[in-house]
Design a protein around this nucleic acid. Sequence first.
DNA 1: GAGATGGATGTTTACGTTAACAATTTCGGC
DNA 2: GCCGAAATTGTTAACGTAAACATCCATCTC
Lengths: 335, 335
Amino acid sequence: MADVAKLAGVSSQTVSRVANGQPGVVESTREQVLAAMRELGYRPNSAARSLRYGRFNTIGVILFGLSSTGNSRTVEAIATHAAAEGYAITLIPVGVPTQDNVLGAFTRMGELAVDGVIVIIEVHLLDATAVALPPGVHAVVVDSDAGDRYPVVDTDQADGARQAVRHLLELGHRTVWHVAGPAESFAAERRASAWRAVLEEAGRPVPPVERGDWSADSGYRAGLRLADHPDCTAVFAANDQMALGVLRALHERGRRVPEDVSVVGFDDIADASSYLPPLTTVHQDFAEVGRRCVRSLLDQIHDGPAAPGTDLVPTTLITRASTGPVSTARDDDRA
Amino acid sequence: MADVAKLAGVSSQTVSRVANGQPGVVESTREQVLAAMRELGYRPNSAARSLRYGRFNTIGVILFGLSSTGNSRTVEAIATHAAAEGYAITLIPVGVPTQDNVLGAFTRMGELAVDGVIVIIEVHLLDATAVALPPGVHAVVVDSDAGDRYPVVDTDQADGARQAVRHLLELGHRTVWHVAGPAESFAAERRASAWRAVLEEAGRPVPPVERGDWSADSGYRAGLRLADHPDCTAVFAANDQMALGVLRALHERGRRVPEDVSVVGFDDIADASSYLPPLTTVHQDFAEVGRRCVRSLLDQIHDGPAAPGTDLVPTTLITRASTGPVSTARDDDRA
DNA sequence: GAGATGGATGTTTACGTTAACAATTTCGGC
DNA sequence: GCCGAAATTGTTAACGTAAACATCCATCTC
């Protein structure tokens, strides 16, 4: 900047004024400064700016990985909305979800060039290890039960699961089997307990839970087990990818969907409408989750700490071809 | 820091030494300083550090979105490897791929707190608009033909496509139809031209190209058109999701896979092994792409500008159930 | 025991920017 | 032509940190 000032024959303060588009610089001077900037390839140093202003215009996102559809779409929405507000996104991946790694990421947060953090992590770990964000760090948490300590934004998992199960019961199925996500996941737990609650309320038997790890493969293995139960006519999978695996397993075992077995997924990923058959599923609005995270965090940054609490984003059941009325004469049909 | 120094009864320089774990501080002093840090909740200011050191320990990633599997997996690998080297990742999303937006992102890059940039963008746009990164910014480009200006890391698209097409020809198919990605995509163009080249080399007829937009839906629409060609027995889809759509279309039209039609995809996304039938596809090593990007960029940052050139990551054909030998008596079988 | 040695700590300065204030110039009005 | 007001430009200081150098003190050597 000093070089620019010298070349343009002005003071560095004037250069600063031009760089920030502040008024009070006469046109001819401005031109000279701009010319000098171009000639020297001047670009402002954001570290110095951040130091001066005391903020970074950056939001940190702590997560395990982008491999899950939900995570990557939430992050994308966060990045988009943050960009619209002039904030950049810094990704802090926590590789293996061990206690040490999470702790490390959280400690690092404190030193990181961010004004606040969005945590997209199964917070089971946080409780277990009593790890917490450094005090005074603005934070919003996604998909967790930390609602008593931080503002939480999450999809309304329970309501989504209720819609799925009720849909199947309304089609006449006696009960609904469930392929749950991993036990460490809050989302998985929420969906499972809502599934159970609906069945109990309706006075239906509660079949044993099959558990997967969100992957299509694990859904396939669960599906094979379900296919062996002749009285299983309705399956609620905790996400679309496991539902895909279930579809494959049922197909291999000769159980037709939806004639013999109805299947519902969760997430409504883009591919779900192209499954065989197109999947009935619970639509999750990741974009809205991301939007609310950014909004909430920026409010905190500008107006000071926010009250803890949970902000739930509603879901919608999308009915496609994988669900249908229970077949009253199943065995005859298959003959 | 000054407060910590005062509380501990030492100079700020000593606090700095303790904070950075430098030697030359006697144990008792160190303890006092650490105690003072804890009491005051001291956390170093990274802006000041960056200003002092002249670097940010941060890598910028410019991209359109995380919605495509490839992008999100590449970004994840980048984030992981960068983290291992002590670098954070800043995401710079370019919403709508317009000239202005790309230009804006590139300009912003210059002012952004990053030491270098990885560009994951179809660089068609860059050429069209003559947009370029600010001079002097370290950069690595993914999936583009900017090999003459920047170091490029990319999957070996052409070889992957060749493997796919040859596999189908070896199974006895007279020719192979192609569902290409969008014309603006370099990856799509590479796959399509390699497909064409293999057919021409082998002296086979080159069917008209069907074009999709990477989505399963677009693959479905293309698949419906292909299903109407009775002599179409082999399809190479430019990605797995479009292949999924093709599978659905063929199923709806009663063309069996692989008995009547063989289908190959590209990417080897996790779900591909659970499609109906499990998809033969070209495995793309996104993790390796991310790793090489980070490596190349860090080399530049540490050792100065690198020579332009293209670094190709090899692919592998994964053979599953969606491909098989051409049926010599197709119509009889179906009767 | 005086001087040399080296380890521990303190002081000064600079990184690049901008707010606050000071100085200078321009210009209108009488 | 002179004064005051407004517009333009310059000067100083501070943001938090760490390298370079300076100082102090304990210990060791002869």
